[in-house]
Structure formats: C-alpha cells, structure tokens
Design a protein around this nucleic acid. Structure first.
Length: 266
DNA sequence: AACAAGACCTGCATGC
DNA sequence: TGCATGCAGGTCTTGT
C-alpha cells in the first residue's frame, strides 16, 4: 500500500479533500480537510500498520486501514460509493479514495517532530524487517511473558506490524505451537521465529498482500498471497508437506481464530 | 502489571 | 424469502 501510494501521489499537491463524515474509529482532527488542502506530499512511509504521509508544511497524515479499509488510486469520479469516507484529489494526478465499511480505520494529523511521541506510535516494537529485529531482541521482549506466543506476536509493542494472518503463518513456518507460553520460547526457537516472520512478510509483500474480502493494493489490484497460506483459513485441510492425518486445526485465542498444525508445531 | 473479554462497525455465509 | 447467528487483515477500553 505504501509503495503504491508513493508511486501514485508522491510529490503531488492535494488540491481538494472530500471529508464525508466526522470521523472513523476516532474523530478526524479539527480542520482536517482544510489543513490538507494545498499541501504537497513530500514522502510516504510507514511504521507498523500506520501509513505516514509527510506533507510540505511539516505535518504528517497518519492513516490506519483497520480491518476493512482500503486506499484506492484512480481517476476522478463524479460520484461516491458507499463507505467512501475521504477522497483526496491531487493536482494533475489521480484521486485517492479511502473506503472502509467497518470504520475501524483512522486518520490523524501530527507535527513531524512529534511523530515519535504520538499516542498511536509511542511504545511500538521494532520493525520486523529491520536488521535490528534479531532473535536476541525478540527473545528479550518475550522473556517472562505468560501469555501465548500467538497473542504476544499480535501485540504491537513486541513487534510492529504483524496481524492475525501473518502470525499464524510465521508460527507455522517456525514450527512453534501458537499455544506455547511466550516466555518459554528459547533462543533456538527465536532463531527460527525471526526468519519465519521476515520470510512471511517478504513473501506477502512480493505477492501484493492478502486479499480476503476488502484488501486491495493502491492500484486496485488484488494481492495473491492468500493462495499461499499454509494454515490460515485452512481448517481441516492438509498443511504443506504434512502427511500426518487431521490437517490444520482452528482454535480461538483472545477471541481471534488461530490456525495451526499440531503435528508440525510444538 | 499482565491478561482476557467486551466494544466498536458492516457485510457476508450459513442454517432454519 | 426472511431472519438469526457467527465470523471477518484491528485495537482501545474495561474488568479481573
């Protein structure tokens, strides 16, 4: 998403903003549309699941897609679809439409020099694709935790950016049971888990993400990593390379579905 | 302090 | 056909 937006609107001026409701998961900040109008997009990057759209006046537009949000780049449209909540028109460039049926997404504005202290970003764990994210770092973050490793990896303070799909897939690749207490993940397992996390994310990004219902890339194309899931949403089906019977199991942890292979994950 | 459960929303598949 | 139920890429708040 970040790369797609960068290619489409990086360097462009936001000519007009249609704000079609007062907020999403949280209210839009005061003067939201007006503060964006006329600004040039200087850079687009990301921290965890938050898109950071940096503007030429030193303000950063923070965007989270929640569960069902999408940012779609396209030609000017003369009508809005249901759940098109914010539409950004660029000068001499495409529109960007933020559409989010469930409205679990959010947008906020913050001064760039206060970004690290922003409530949403403060306390967030390391970026999983950074070289600084090592087995030793993960092991230290997990030490002493009694919660299940599944829940710990979903905790954005432990490591940033992992969601339900990629946690399930990473635990499968690492051969670690989602029910294992986080504090019992030792050096040998952390040494498998870190590359498993990096590998799953790299593969998913290369595939354009995972399209279940809502997610599309910025250009509207579907991602196709969902066709490469080993365990996620594959209850009862065999996991790759596993010929022990039974197949993939589904359990509920913290109110979320977990998919795993009891034979390959301990 | 750490953890689980509930809340926030809409849409879709399933079963009666 | 209609209706009820359960589930969904997340995370914040509340209660134990």
């Amino acid at each position: 998403m970040c790369r797609g937006l960068r290619a489409a609107i990086g360097g462009r001026v936001i000519a007009r903003v249609h704000q079609r409701r007062s907020g999403l998961r949280q209210p839009f900040p005061r003067g939201f549309a007006k503060r964006l109008t006329g600004r040039r997009v200087e850079a687009i990057d990301r921290r965890g699941k938050y898109l950071l759209i940096r503007l030429d006046d030193g303000v950063v537009l923070i965007v989270h897609l929640g569960m069902s949000g999408r940012m779609v780049v396209g030609a000017r449209r003369n009508r809005f679809d249901t759940h098109d909540h914010v539409v950004f028109e660029t000068a001499d460039g495409p529109d960007v439409v933020f559409n989010d049926p469930r409205r679990f997404g959010l947008m906020d504005l913050v001064a760039a020099d206060r970004l690290d202290r922003h409530k949403l970003l403060r306390g967030m764990g390391p970026e999983p694709l950074d070289t600084a994210f090592t087995p030793a770092v993960l092991g230290a973050a997990l030490a002493g935790r009694k919660t299940a490793i599944k829940a710990a990896l979903l905790d954005q303070r432990i490591v940033a950016g992992l969601g339900n799909i990629y946690v399930c897939e990473a635990l499968f690749r690492a051969g670690i049971s989602p029910r294992r207490r986080a504090g019992t993940v030792g050096p040998a397992q952390a040494a498998r888990l870190v590359p498993a996390i990096k590998g799953v994310l790299a593969d998913a990004i290369a595939a354009g993400g995972s399209s279940l219902k809502d997610y599309v890339q910025a250009d509207g194309e579907l991602g196709y990593f969902q066709h490469h899931f080993a365990v996620y949403d594959r209850e009862g089906k065999p996991c790759p390379g596993c010929r022990c019977g039974g197949g993939v199991k589904r359990i509920v942890q913290g109110g979320r579905s977990t998919f795993f292979c009891p034979n390959r994950q301990r």
